[in-house]
């Protein structure tokens, strides 16, 4: 049989481990938890619509993850979405005229930011803003546009007025 002091210490460790597990589970939910973002520099981009983009979503260039979305906020003057990206220090020479687009990974997947490099000789640094952006594609808008175009096309061809003939 172990010494009662040793047993008390072991039980203390056991309780601490259990509480640590609970804490870890709770931290998962808020954004405090998870592995750190590592070192990097931050750049911004403005979008009219970011769709379902979330913080910590990947930032990719040519399909390679080079950073993560650090924060999303609203510009109070223009009402555009301002996305702050944290780019890894390994990728220092991203041209100034790079463009940013929001894409969806797969049909139901998560949204991410894709950077298409330009040809400029100057490179983006901490706090710079990407000027050329294209917004997230909202599926409802595309379907709406498609329906509208179909209806308009049907009218021109048949001239029998009204109705959605696909």
């Amino acid at each position: 049989m172990l010494q009662s002091k040793t047993i008390e210490i072991i039980v203390g460790i056991f309780v601490l481990l259990g509480l640590a597990a609970l804490l870890m589970l709770s931290m998962k939910v808020s954004n405090i938890g998870g592995p750190g973002e590592g070192s990097g520099y931050k750049i911004e981009a403005e979008f009219l619509n970011i769709g379902g983009l979330k913080t910590r979503a990947p930032v990719k260039m040519a399909g390679v993850t080079i950073g993560r979305v650090h924060g999303i906020s609203i510009d109070e003057d223009t009402y555009n979405a301002v996305v702050v990206m944290n780019i890894s220090n390994d990728y220092k020479n991203i041209p100034m005229d790079t463009s940013a687009s929001i894409y969806t990974a797969g049909l139901l997947g998560e949204q991410y930011i894709s950077l298409q490099p330009g040809g400029s000789e100057t490179y983006l640094a901490e706090g710079d803003q990407i000027q050329i952006t294209s917004d997230a594609v909202v599926l409802e808008e595309i379907i709406g546009q498609f329906m509208y175009n179909q209806a308009a096309g049907g009218n021109e061809d048949g001239g029998n007025g009204g109705g959605l003939d696909f």
């Binding site: 870890m24 998870g34 592995p35 979330k54 913080t55 979503a57 993850t65 998560e110």
Partner: peptide
């Protein structure tokens, strides 16, 4: 502890072995 260790195990297989994106794994979970 069971749940916490299980999530770490799932992370280990999903992200470590099968190549799921780390950020998406945690962000969607959160």
């Amino acid at each position: 502890m069971f749940s916490a260790v299980g999530i770490i195990g799932g992370y280990f297989v999903g992200v470590g072995l099968l190549g799921v994106d780390t950020g998406a794994f945690w962000a969607q979970m959160q």
